[in-house]
Nucleic acid binder design. Structure first.
Length: 136
DNA sequence: TTTCTAACA
DNA sequence: TGTTAGTA
């Protein structure tokens, strides 16, 4: 599946990514500093983002808007990245995406629950809406 | 013109 | 995070 190399191909500079994600260059660079993304670099030190990087930034943006801080996002992202779970290659790419989303949601939920228990409640009202999806 | 790093009224 | 400075 060379679809992966296409998604991971470093293509666009930060200017394009800014428009694609509605994030400021400052934010994008800041998220990189915190290890949320790792865009490639040109010989001139300029960042080159791939489709995956942009996707990741969009997820980060969504989480930020839900009120999470960098630390929280790091944890959420860590639950979906280092999870090479063996998945059947029979499903269509679309069906696979749904499965992944569902799985990510479970992980996110679990993470958020632990998060809320450990920390003091208040700003972490994440999943409130997402919870309904498990009460079908 | 665009991007980069570092730093702060 | 915004924003500015001085580069490459």
């Amino acid at each position: 599946m060379s679809d992966d190399i296409r998604r991971n191909m470093a293509l666009f500079p930060i200017g394009i990514v800014m428009k694609l994600t509605d994030l400021t260059a400052r934010q994008i660079r800041y998220y990189e500093q915190n290890g949320l993304i790792q865009p490639a670099r040109t010989e001139g030190k300029q960042r080159l983002f791939s489709f995956n990087d942009v996707d990741r930034l969009l997820e980060i943006k969504a989480l930020i808007e839900k009120g999470l801080n960098i630390a929280g996002i790091k944890q959420v992202l860590q639950l979906q990245q280092p999870a090479p779970e063996k998945t059947e290659i029979t499903a269509t790419s679309e069906a696979k995406r749904k499965e992944m989303s569902e799985k990510e949601l479970h992980q996110l939920l679990k993470q958020q629950i632990l998060f809320n228990n450990a920390a003091r409640h208040g700003e972490n009202a994440l999943i409130r809406g997402e919870l309904s999806r498990f009460f079908h």
